[in-house]
Design a protein around this nucleic acid. Structure first.
Length: 844
RNA sequence: GCGGACGUGGCGGAACCGGUAGACGCUGGAGACUUAAAAUCUUCUGCCCAAUGGGCGUGCGGGUUCGAGUCCCGCCGUCCGCACCA
């Protein structure tokens, strides 16, 4: 037969063989009833966009290494996979390709499941779920009703991006340069009545809870802290000099800088403020201004970078600390209705936006903060938003910013015109989406009863299948046989809610459903608590705020209403970097995929199809628009699962971006073959090799530590070192042990290779069931150390000495070195610093 | 605009708590094996110079220290998030 198998690792056979064996043995099915300690490893579940991309491969490889490592350490591991299957792309596909969103999504899932299986992930496929199936979203509807019963759901008006031509709501992503992506019409902000979850009730808890998340990256905790944005300040009331057409007689404002109250030169209200709206009803020019201010999308970035627009209402308010001082009331486009009270007082000298606004509309700029009292008269030429000493502020003069703020709050409270309050930047979570492909909100609107929850015995509220996407807008609105129902309370004709839930709701509890999935309820509390919280959660940084905050909130909300006994869903969090690739652009400006180009002589790049030279662009995140994606599937065909997995772990630290390169995957494939070749060397040798044994123990310690800390690139480097040393060593019993250890250490990253090698060496059972090797700490330490000898901090020589040598001996040895003598030139050293077992620094 | 990060050879990166900068990999050079190629193996590879030695080096400019990639202050550049993309 002349099998070439022993020369080359045949991944085509091995990958399939071991994937099948693991499957048959149900190796990775998690047993909730197991008596072993439990470990829950979870990667953020994918959106089924069509095909697996390199970002998925990287993410799931990291989780897989950890899951397999934990299993080897003796844990009962839960490592599940599912599909975040609702979302806009399915509706876009429906419009473009005339395919039902469900069909498109389920086909994508089937494709991607097959792709994931080829990579050999240690997943418990028996727990697979897809959020677009009624057996998932029906339970979500039940939880929504639970939150309603718990008083955590309410309705209010809020603004959406409105396309006036297509007459449809647009996602932020669908607004390009202030225009609708399909119609090209200028987008407006429109008010709509929507469902909200009371996340602000949890602002303080969510903030406090960050303190308990010591296995989260600091940057993520900091970002969440800033997002919640707790600030202390003064809320107070400006009395209007005259009553408005709407009958209002005062304006509530909030400020984090009460110390600057004497620097006020105007009051600005949001275009959505009740006073503005009341005036708009009376005065067409106000209405026109508000319409203008509402042009453009709803995103913070857009609102804050838009040109500042103001409208002087002619109204005036009275300054609370000076009855003779009146301030004009403006409507301004940069004031957000959702933050604070929707109104503020402008202090141009000490706030950047106020400064810009005042400069444009020629409003006074008054200095009320200076570095010291002598700076009181200095003009303010650019905004000064730092702290300092109060000036030009009557009784506040001379106080520092904090004192002055406290004093204003004290006086306001004493006189009753305001009070010190805590304000959060966090806003309640609007969950209504005017779209078909999402979880139907289980509510029925009745003219006499108002909104009524769908009775639980009528759940799930299933999406109708017979819908069309040939007209813009939500098909559920047009589907009268679905949305016309009787009120569950009074039986009169009513209308089903046609909005669906934000897909972030779907991803706010899937980790609980993975842990426990009974048919008759969302989860079994006791079983879920066996596994939760998730021990290690892994995913992209782009989810650092929204998804992670919503999931934390949802968990706490369930805890508050008594559904579960945990407050934080994710004990450990790891945010991995992106997979990037060079970009290529032809002379006529087309982006080209890496498979469309080839390298000509001299390293020039040319387009295969045309032979024309092309330009090498910057390294960017793999994306369809830049065409710099590398499809994992052909790579799997060519190099096998382990090489791909290994490359994903090798080059870059996991939290940083990984650049896909041909050289990188080749290097990984070469390593796979090296290990295989090493595993083929005959076993059963005699004799010791202490140096190699030490290296083996060091590698066991280093690899374990690196995986524990999710520093996979370091574990790879340690394995290369062990491989190098083992290859060089002559036959010995220690070398046989080193090979065995190498296979165990390599197995979480390259499991097919490890299994095949394990079997070929005649080892018992599957390596998937083997235990992680232990190391002998005594073998990690060397008896001799190399000590650096510096003169004035510069390395001049080294010396070797027994570990733990006394200072004086080392110092004498260092001074006796010829190179050091030469440096000193006969002079006595001024000072000598000795760091035991490390270095000697001689100050000359 | 606001918030967060990152920056080390030709490239990806390593460096415990402030203590020998460049582990490990990629690329490249030289050599071995081969009829040849591939594969594999050996060896070198931060830059500069008057080269068995010396100088310079962790984005830039300062500072603290016996000693700074690491700590502090000020810049520059790049990337990510901003509430309806997932």
């Amino acid at each position: 037969m002349g099998r070439a198998m022993t020369d080359r690792f045949d991944f085509k056979t091995a990958d399939r063989r071991w994937q099948q064996r693991w499957d048959e043995a149900q190796c990775f099915a998690a047993d909730s009833a197991s008596s072993k300690p439990k470990s829950y490893v979870l990667e953020m579940f994918p959106y089924p966009s069509g095909r697996i991309h390199m970002g998925h491969v990287r993410n799931y490889t990291m989780g897989d290494v950890l899951a397999r490592f934990r299993r080897m350490q003796g844990f009962e591991v839960l490592h599940p996979m599912g599909w975040d299957a609702f979302g806009m792309p399915a509706e876009n596909a429906a419009m473009e390709k005339k395919v039902h969103p469900g069909t498109w999504t389920r086909e994508n899932i089937a494709t991607m499941r097959g792709q994931l299986k080829r990579i050999g992930f240690a997943l418990d496929w028996s727990r697979e779920l897809a959020t677009c199936e009624p057996d998932y979203y029906g339970h979500e509807q039940a939880l929504f009703l639970d939150l309603m019963d718990g008083g955590l759901v309410y309705r209010k008006e809020s603004e959406v991006n409105w396309d006036p031509v297509d007459m449809t709501v647009l996602a932020n992503e669908q607004v390009i340069d202030g225009k609708g992506w399909r119609s090209g019409a200028a987008v407006e902000r429109k008010k709509l009545s929507q469902w909200f979850l009371k996340i602000t009730d949890f602002a303080e808890e969510l903030l406090d809870g960050l303190g308990t998340l010591d296995q989260w990256p600091d940057k993520v905790r900091l970002m969440q802290e800033n997002w919640i944005g707790k600030s202390r300040g003064l809320q107070f009331c400006f009395r209007l000099a005259e009553t408005t057409p709407g009958g209002q007689c005062d304006v509530d404002v909030f400020t984090t800088r009460p110390d600057t109250i004497f620097g006020a030169s105007f009051v600005a209200i949001s275009p959505g403020h009740p006073i503005a709206e009341a005036m708009a009803a009376e005065r067409p020019e106000v209405a026109a201004f508000i319409a203008k201010a509402r042009q453009g999308g709803t995103t913070a970035a857009e609102i804050e970078t838009a040109e500042k627009l103001g409208f002087d209402t002619g109204l005036e308010v009275v300054h609370p600390l000076d009855p003779n001082w009146r301030l004009p009331v403006w409507i301004a486009n940069f004031v957000l209705m959702d933050y604070g009270t929707g109104a503020l007082f402008g202090v141009p000298a000490h706030d950047a936006r106020d400064f810009e606004f005042a400069t444009k509309y020629d409003l006074p700029v008054r200095r009320v903060v200076a570095a010291d009292a002598s700076g009181a008269a200095a003009p303010v030429v650019e905004v000064e938003n730092g702290d300092g000493i109060a000036v030009n502020s009557q009784f506040l003069d001379g106080m520092c910013t904090a004192e002055a703020a406290a004093e204003v709050i004290r006086r306001a409270e004493a006189a009753g015109w305001g009070k010190g309050t805590t304000q959060y930047r966090l806003r309640d979570w609007g969950v209504s989406r005017q779209r078909y492909w999402g979880t139907p909100i289980p509510v029925i609107h009745c003219e006499s009863c108002g909104p009524v929850g769908v009775p639980r015995d009528q759940l799930p509220v299933v999406l109708p299948e017979d819908v069309s996407f040939d007209v813009p807008g939500n098909p559920l609105d047009r589907h009268s046989s679905w949305n016309k129902v009787d009120c569950p309370a009074c039986s009169s004709p009513a209308r089903r809610e046609t909005d669906t839930l934000d897909t972030f709701v779907d991803s706010s509890w899937y980790f609980i459903r993975f842990a426990s999935q009974p048919d008759d309820k969302p989860f079994d509390r006791a079983e879920a608590e066996q596994w939760l919280p998730v021990g290690q959660y892994i995913g992209g940084v782009e989810h650092a705020i929204l998804h992670l905050l919503y999931a934390r909130f949802w968990t706490r909300a369930l805890e508050r209403i008594g559904k579960i006994g945990i407050k934080e869903p994710f004990k450990g969090l790891f945010t991995q970097g992106m997979v990037t690739h060079e970009t290529y652009k032809s002379a006529d400006g087309r982006w080209l995929n890496p498979v469309e180009i080839e390298v000509a002589d001299g390293g020039r790049l040319i387009e295969r199809a045309t032979g024309a030279e092309i330009e090498r662009g910057r390294i960017e995140k793999m994306s369809k628009s830049k065409k710099n994606t590398v499809d994992p599937e052909p790579i799997l065909d060519r190099y096998g699962a382990d090489a791909v997995r290994w490359f994903m772990l090798s080059d870059s630290p996991p939290e940083r971006d990984l650049e896909w390169s041909e050289g990188g995957i080749e290097g990984a494939a070469r390593f796979v073959q090296r290990v295989w070749r090493l595993a083929q060397s005959p076993a059963g040798n005699q004799g010791e090799d202490l140096a190699l044994r030490k290296k083996m123990h060091r590698a066991i310690a280093a690899v374990g530590e690196a995986i524990e800390g999710l520093q996979f690139n370091k574990s790879v480097a340690a394995l290369y070192e062990l491989t190098n040393a083992t290859e060089k060593a002559g036959p010995s019993a220690d070398r046989d042990l080193a090979i065995k250890a190498l296979l165990l250490l390599v197995s979480p990253g390259a499991p097919h290779l490890a299994e095949e090698s394990w079997m070929s060496r005649g080892e018992e059972g599957m390596i998937a069931d083997a235990a992680w090797p232990s190391h002998d700490p005594a073998l990690l330490i060397d008896d001799e150390v190399t000590i650096a000898v510096q003169v004035n901090g510069k390395l001049r020589d080294t010396l070797t000495a027994p570990r733990g040598s006394v200072k004086d001996v080392i110092e004498a040895q260092a001074l006796a070195l010829p190179k050091i003598q030469a440096q000193l030139g006969g002079n006595a050293p001024k000072k000598v610093i000795v760091v035991p077992d490390r270095l000697v620094n001689i100050v000359a």
